[in-house]
């Protein structure tokens, strides 16, 4: 595989939160990059700073109590130099984000369709009818049953799995080059999790966007990611090809993480191997 310029380049990123007199070092000089079309997994226990990394990339951190240092380049552009309209052109349109809890990430007073049409019209300056068509197409693409009806539904009328797929469709409709998925399956039941992962893998393969999958579920990361980053206490402990990291961890903490889910990982490693070889990912 030809070595491409990175799509996302995170350099020495630090995030600190001021909480009263104290200061939390949530992210500590983290560097990594994502190439176009590459899927990178970010794993680590709760509170290790994973969400803070994703939020820093989209500039979502409250500037009031937050100190950010380092540099984030997206497509060669320094994101930290973006003004408001610069951010609005990047967010959603070029970097999409999927959140953990699907129902609460929809506006409770607007239908799913209205929110899709609203975002499509804003980013692509479309007429209403055209935006509707694209929204429907996106819902079909994520395998949503009865998409016409779902357009008129509020999030509270959908099941968790349906909701998360609607959220995925909303992100996909804007055709981003990079998708940040922050624990996309954490609030779903096992069946809905499996289904969502399947659709996510399928669409990613078809569309070829790059993705940062954040999870403490190593199973999910093994299934989707080409590369894995392991975080602990705000620091990046280990990074490398998924197979190498999971099969032959270099850091004791990674080993510890792996031991926590031994059975699932071994079962999944086999499918992952097939998948990664087929994709031509360079394995060590």
């Amino acid at each position: 595989m030809k070595k491409m310029n990175p799509l996302l380049n995170v350099k020495q990123l630090s995030v600190r939160y001021a909480t009263g007199a104290d200061e939390v070092r949530a992210v500590d000089e983290v560097s990594f990059s994502i190439r176009p079309g590459e899927v990178v997994g970010l794993v680590g226990e709760s509170g290790s700073g994973k969400s803070s990394v994703a939020q820093a990339i989209l500039g979502l951190l409250d500037q009031h109590n937050t100190t950010i240092a380092g540099r984030i380049e997206f497509d060669g552009e320094n994101l930290f130099s973006c003004d408001e309209s610069g951010w609005n052109a990047v967010r959603g349109r070029r970097i999409g984000m999927i959140f953990q809890s699907p129902e609460s990430s929809f506006n409770p007073v607007a239908t799913v369709g209205a929110q899709m049409v609203e975002a499509l019209r804003w980013h692509f300056k479309l007429a209403k009818v055209e935006a509707r068509q694209r929204a429907l197409a996106a819902l079909r693409e994520v395998g949503m049953p009865r998409p016409e009806e779902v357009m008129h539904n509020y999030a509270f009328e959908l099941s968790g799995g349906m909701c998360q797929r609607a959220a995925l469709a909303l992100v996909m409709a804007l055709q981003p080059a990079l998708v940040l998925a922050d624990e996309p399956t954490a609030s779903l039941d096992v069946l809905a999790q499996a289904e969502l992962v399947q659709w996510l893998a399928l669409i990613q393969k078809k569309r070829g966007f790059a993705m940062l999958v954040i999870s403490h579920d190593l199973n999910l990361v093994a299934r989707l990611a080409d590369q894995v980053l392991v975080m602990h206490g705000g620091r990046l402990l280990e990074k490398g090809a998924t197979r190498r990291v999971l099969a032959n961890p270099q850091h004791p903490y990674t080993e510890q993480l792996l031991r926590a889910v031994p059975r699932l990982i071994t079962a999944d490693m086999r499918t992952h191997n097939d998948h990664s070889v087929k994709n031509g990912v360079v394995l060590p």
């Binding site: 959603g92 999409g96 984000m97 809890s101 975002a119």
Partner: peptide, 20 residues
């Protein structure tokens, strides 16, 4: 709220965030 944060992450402008 999560939905407001998600709307910001979608790149919606101030006008839409405020009125809708």
């Amino acid at each position: 709220s999560d939905y407001y944060r998600a709307a910001v992450a979608r790149g919606l402008p101030r006008r839409i965030l405020m009125w809708r």
